[in-house]
């Protein structure tokens, strides 16, 4: 294992210390393990969290116009209720707190426990579950669709709504609307290595790709042979299209999984734009870059959201976070 770390057990702490030094405007609570701003009086607090290893998600999205707090768990391990509760209390500005939860069993259970504990303490907590990964076909016999790229859209758009004074119920509603309108599909070209084990999370042959991979390296729909960016983009978009017809105005994210250079993401984006144009859809907004990663996994995910004028306005609203900033 070759990694820029000091010791496998210290990765998260060392990273949080570095994050704190890099972004002095944000608060990094090393003891309770959360990154926060505020609280902002009268504003709904937004808290997300999940296993580490997906940076910049979620800590990189704490700031004006997006999250109020992010709770990082150990690498690929959900955060624990105590830290979620501490963060929830820290950002409560009196208007309640919304939890944004990716659909993984561990995340769901730990957020559920934290919400119950917060409720016991008299806080108002709602939650939005993100499950946008269309690669999971059989939701009945699995833990259901995973939360992936759509999380970035939910955090940005709900963040804008909260900043404008939307109440807790309205924030939850817009979060669910964004999730309902978003779909993702990922493809891995190589595996990742969890620092604690020092071994590949899964095996992938030199010429193989995992089609429909999850952000922890969960298997997708099939193993395939390496092929062109155009073909890979086509497979991902066809899978999304089969689930949610791609038409009208779209927000599109081509996201790197951590080990793919930006130049390749632009190559993928060209293929995505060409595909969608040929289907008569219009990309009205886009993101190309590394927003929700899987350690050093090479590959990309494509996330598409069907826009409305209201959601476009919220997307365009000012945001100032370590990883996403415009309009301010």
């Amino acid at each position: 294992m070759k990694k820029l770390i000091n010791a496998p057990d210290d990765v998260l702490t060392d990273a949080l210390v570095g994050f704190a030094a890099a972004y002095p405007d944000l608060t990094v609570n090393l003891e309770d393990r959360y990154i926060s701003r505020g609280p902002t009086a009268g504003k709904v607090g937004l808290v997300s969290g999940g296993g580490s290893g997906h940076e910049p998600l979620h800590g990189g999205f704490v700031g004006f116009g997006m999250l109020d707090a992010a709770c990082p768990g150990e690498v690929f391990t959900s955060p624990v209720p105590d830290q979620l509760l501490a963060a929830t209390k820290a950002v409560d500005g009196g208007a309640g707190v919304l939890h944004i939860v990716k659909n993984y069993t561990g995340d769901v259970l730990n957020f559920q426990m934290a919400a119950e504990l917060a409720g016991d303490d008299g806080l108002q907590v709602e939650s939005v579950l993100v499950n946008d990964d269309v690669a999971v076909e059989n939701s009945t016999y699995t833990a259901g669709r995973r939360g992936t790229g759509g999380t970035v859209f939910v955090e940005k758009i709900v963040g804008a709504a909260a900043e404008r004074g939307a109440d807790l119920a309205a924030c939850a509603a817009v979060g669910r609307e964004v999730n309902d309108r978003s779909r993702s599909f990922g493809v891995a070209l190589s595996t990742n290595v969890i620092p604690a084990t020092g071994k590949p999370g899964f095996e992938l042959g030199d010429t193989e790709i995992e089609i429909g991979v999850g952000i922890h390296g969960e298997p997708g729909r099939s193993r395939g042979q390496m092929t062109t960016a155009r073909e890979i983009a086509g497979v991902a978009l066809e899978a999304i299209h089969a689930d949610m017809p791609l038409s009208g105005d779209l927000l599109v994210m081509v996201n790197g999984l951590g080990g793919t250079p930006l130049i390749e993401l632009y190559v993928v984006y060209a293929a995505v734009a060409e595909f969608l144009e040929s289907r008569g859809a219009t990309i009205t907004r886009n993101l190309v870059g590394n927003y929700i990663t899987s350690l050093e996994m090479a590959g990309c995910s494509i996330t598409v959201m069907r826009m409305t004028p209201e959601l476009t306005e919220l997307w365009d609203a000012p945001v100032q976070t370590p990883a996403l900033r415009w309009g301010r």
Partner: peptide, 12 residues
Amino acid sequence: LISKTGGASGPL
């Protein structure tokens, strides 16, 4: 266990 374990096994 709920406080310190993480993952699904902690709450369970």
